[in-house]
């Protein structure tokens, strides 16, 4: 018996959330005296696959056939179901990424397994099996009890730490017989947002709102983000007005993130916005209105003119980084 982890790759390299999922699986396996098997679908070098051993995976099952090069939820589900059977896995760990959201629910239906999506901590008990997740878009938490024989957990990105747990790892190439009919999604094109930090994976996020007065003023936001190694985000009105692309919109109807540091500039802090970022570890609010709701949930605040403050912050970050 082992715990299975779906280790996603991007351009042949493990994604950051995959290491979070591996660490989660390893910590879970330790309490149950189990081992962790990673499933990798699509191209990856042997050197890269071996890295799974540094994060606690004793075995890697690699489905490397050329037909797995492009992502297809039905076929990937079938591969994972096959591995779950061959490994007799009772717990399967995903990361709640876009790919995770494509595959985990299908696998749950196929295996008649209970799925906890967006888990934020290890199970609080194994009998009954209870895992905590966020609900109401970050306005609450719920403890989900899973009663099925097989249990699937999709871990919220950035919610679980990454830890090195070096074990000896064996790599096994697999070629499961997947019916041609399951390759039913044709990927015509992949458009990468090149050179940018993926918002959902970012440890630091610099976000700005209507207080910036217009899209032409975003240069200083990007400069601060670059200095911090941060991703950029925005509020809903800003995305709705077309100042920034929709994929940057965080909040209840945008995306929910939980970075280590969230810096909100010129965002008043409507309840829908706060829902999307409230589980950030440290929150900074910068706003000219001292009554802005954001200050009620922020850890640090500055009341003042963003146009004066932001460039000074960028300067201070650069100085700090150059002195270390």
């Amino acid at each position: 018996m082992s715990i299975l982890v779906y280790a996603e790759t991007w351009d042949g390299k493990f994604k950051k959330p995959s290491f979070e999922a591996m660490t989660y699986a390893f910590e879970l396996a330790k309490t149950a005296n189990d081992t962790v098997t990673a499933v990798v679908i699509g191209p990856a070098s042997e050197d890269e696959l071996k890295r799974a051993g540094e994060y606690g995976c004793s075995k890697v099952l690699h489905a490397n056939d050329s037909k797995f090069v492009s992502f297809c939820p039905s076929a990937y589900t079938a591969v994972l179901a096959d591995c779950a059977t061959s490994e007799n896995a009772k717990t399967i760990v995903f990361s709640q990424t876009y790919s995770g959201k494509s595959v985990a629910p299908r696998l749950a239906a196929k295996l008649k397994a209970g799925l906890v999506s967006g888990a934020i901590s290890l199970p609080s008990s194994s009998e009954p099996f209870v895992v905590r997740k966020k609900c109401f878009s970050g306005k609450g938490f719920t403890d989900v009890q899973v009663s099925s024989d097989i249990k699937i957990i999709a871990v919220f990105p950035n919610a679980h730490h990454i830890a090195a747990n070096s074990v000896s790892v064996t790599i096994q190439t697999i070629n499961p017989a997947i019916a041609d009919a399951l390759f039913n999604t044709k990927v015509n094109e992949v458009k990468k947002t090149s050179g940018k930090i993926v918002l959902t994976e970012a440890e630091i996020v610099v976000s700005a709102g209507r207080g910036m007065k217009g899209p032409e003023n975003w240069g200083m936001i990007e400069e601060l983000a670059d200095a911090l190694g941060a991703a950029t985000a925005c509020s809903k009105p800003v995305a709705d007005m077309g100042w920034r692309p929709h994929h940057e919109h965080v909040g209840q109807t945008g995306i929910t993130i939980s970075p280590n540091l969230y810096i909100a500039i010129g965002i008043s802090g409507a309840i829908q916005h706060l829902a999307g970022i409230s589980s950030s570890k440290v929150i900074v609010a910068i706003n000219s209105d001292k009554e802005a709701p954001f200050f009620k949930i922020a850890d640090y605040g500055i009341v003042g003119d963003a146009f004066q403050i932001v460039p000074k912050l960028t300067e201070a970050v650069k100085q700090l980084k150059s002195s270390h």
Binding site: C135, K139, T142, D143, V144, Q145, G301
Partner: peptide, 21 residues
């Protein structure tokens, strides 16, 4: 196979530390 057995609201935040502009 699943059920939500308990709910909680996030813990209240501590006071915001203000920094001079």
């Amino acid at each position: 196979p699943t059920s939500s057995v308990a709910f909680q609201t996030p813990p209240p935040k501590s006071e915001c530390k203000m920094i001079s502009p």
